[in-house]
Design a protein around this nucleic acid. Structure first.
Length: 409
RNA sequence: CAGGGUGUGGCGCAGUUGGUAGCGCGCAGCGUUCGGGACGCUGAGGCCGUCGGUUCAAGUCCGAUCACCCUGACCA
């Protein structure tokens, strides 16, 4: 991408209504644009990060045999009424709207009901199961208070996976596979070392659910962890009974804040029973389908990662999800000429700062945008037949010969 | 929803006892600059969140309302 051709612009100062680090930097660097509280547009750079995160998640889920679909945002109240969740007393974050022909619709805050309803058309025999379906979908939640940049929005992107099984053992087995897949996803996103699988309330259907919590100062959740962080508990289940349950009554726990980036849940019959998702088993008997659901907050993840790696100079993306690998700067007539040559054929990897700006400003922007490697070609480097590479993370610079630059970058 | 704060060009801000809006950044043109957010000159851009009231006169005073931020509560 050529910076001279894009509409996005960096800002020297953050808009005053962005006080969270992620919102401030993502706005200043031109990744997102705010429409209103908790509602953001994703600009070219931001969209690339989102897509890169999606690619990693998609890759790991597809390995488990999951199939991707896309469901609707507009929701028929009927299935929700069957589970009691269309009620504002039960679920108080609904956005609801009216049909011109009369009647009410909801804007999906999650998709358990519609997917169970949908699966009734496709599941009839034990031979049809198990099924694993996921989507990346915009969710709407009418939060009383949106805050913290893109960490808590009213409209946000989520990956939601639903699994359907004939037995609890099969559900357990798949649940564990998802735990492992999530672990790999967070490794590839470079946040595995600060992200912990956390015991949280499982409501009335299971004792616990598991959350994936990234330790982060602006996180909204309070969690407790033991000495080696082998046991992490959400505040909501941090009590004597649970500690006894987990056999850790003797250990000392510390408190910290964290951001929930994923949640996995053994729903069992919670939604399949009231909605009547059944199958015929080998013995010709009708049985209810076991269900699990597994979420990852994709847009929140982008905010968490932005927040996690940012420094005083700006954003700092892991290579795996950075919008571009290289930030290219040519200085002087010859430097610009060589930069053009390098850019040619590497458009997808390279953010080319070909603007008519002084080098200092380009350096600043390369750091603000957090692109992993900066390539500078100037008269100075050309005198040594080389280019200068600078690592965004370490700040270290080194020279590579032009031959090597053109061959292996 | 409770408490606190803020709304003035794209962004950050100033605006005195009410008298018809200004600064920095950014933007346009010209010139000088060109490896760490350069400089000079010229210029464009705003019915001051919205509605109502007081007044000869409202960015400024009064009332209402909307939006945004922070803390808390809430978080299926």
């Amino acid at each position: 991408m050529r910076l001279s051709k894009t509409f996005i612009k960096t800002l020297r100062e953050a808009p005053k209504d962005e006080t969270a680090k992620n919102g401030e930097l993502l706005t200043r660097a031109g990744y997102i644009h705010k429409e209103m509280a908790g509602v953001y547009d994703y600009l070219p750079l931001g969209l690339r990060v989102i897509e890169n995160i999606k690619t990693i998640i998609r890759d790991e889920l597809n390995k488990l045999g999951c199939e991707e679909i896309s469901m609707t945002t507009l929701q028929n109240p009927e299935p929700w009424e069957k589970t009691g969740r269309f009620s504002d007393q039960e679920v108080d974050i609904w956005f609801k709207t009216e049909l011109a022909s009369g009647g009410e619709l909801g804007l999906a805050p999650t998709h358990e009901e519609p997917i169970v309803e949908m699966m009734k058309s496709y599941v009839s025999s034990y031979k049809d199961l198990p099924i694993y379906i996921y989507q990346f979908q915009t969710k709407f939640r009418n939060e009383l208070r949106a805050k913290s940049g893109i960490l808590r929005g009213r409209e946000f992107l989520m990956k939601d996976l639903y699994s359907f099984h004939t037995s609890e053992e099969d559900l357990d087995d798949f649940y564990q596979k998802v735990e492992e897949a999530y672990r790999r996803i967070f490794e590839r996103l470079n946040i595995a070392d600060c992200t912990y699988e956390t015991f949280a309330s499982g409501g009335i259907f299971s004792k616990y659910s598991h959350e994936f919590q990234t330790f982060l100062p602006v996180g909204e959740d309070t969690v407790y962890y033991n000495n080696d962080k082998s046991v992490v508990l959400n505040k909501e289940v941090y009590n004597e009974e649970v500690l006894r349950d987990l056999n850790v009554t003797d250990e000392k726990f510390e408190e910290t804040t964290a951001a929930e980036i994923g949640n996995i849940f053994k729903l069992k019959f919670k939604y399949t029973e009231p909605l009547g998702l059944k199958y015929v088993d080998e013995d010709n008997s009708q049985k209810t389908v076991y269900m699990g659901c597994y979420g990852i907050g994709v847009s929140r993840l982008m905010g968490v990662i932005a927040e996690k790696f940012a420094d005083e100079k700006g954003l700092n993306w892991p290579e795996t999800i950075a919008p571009f690998r290289y930030y290219l700067i040519g200085i002087g007539e010859n430097g610009e000429k060589e930069a053009e040559k390098f850019y040619n054929g590497r458009e997808e990897l390279t953010l080319f700062d070909d603007r008519d700006k002084r080098p200092g400003e380009k350096f600043q922007d390369s750091e603000l945008m957090g692109i992993p490697l900066r390539i500078v070609i100037s008269d100075k480097t050309l005198a040594e037949n080389s280019a200068e590479i600078t690592d965004r993370k370490t700040g270290e610079s080194w020279k590579v010969s032009l031959e090597k630059l053109f061959d292996s970058f």
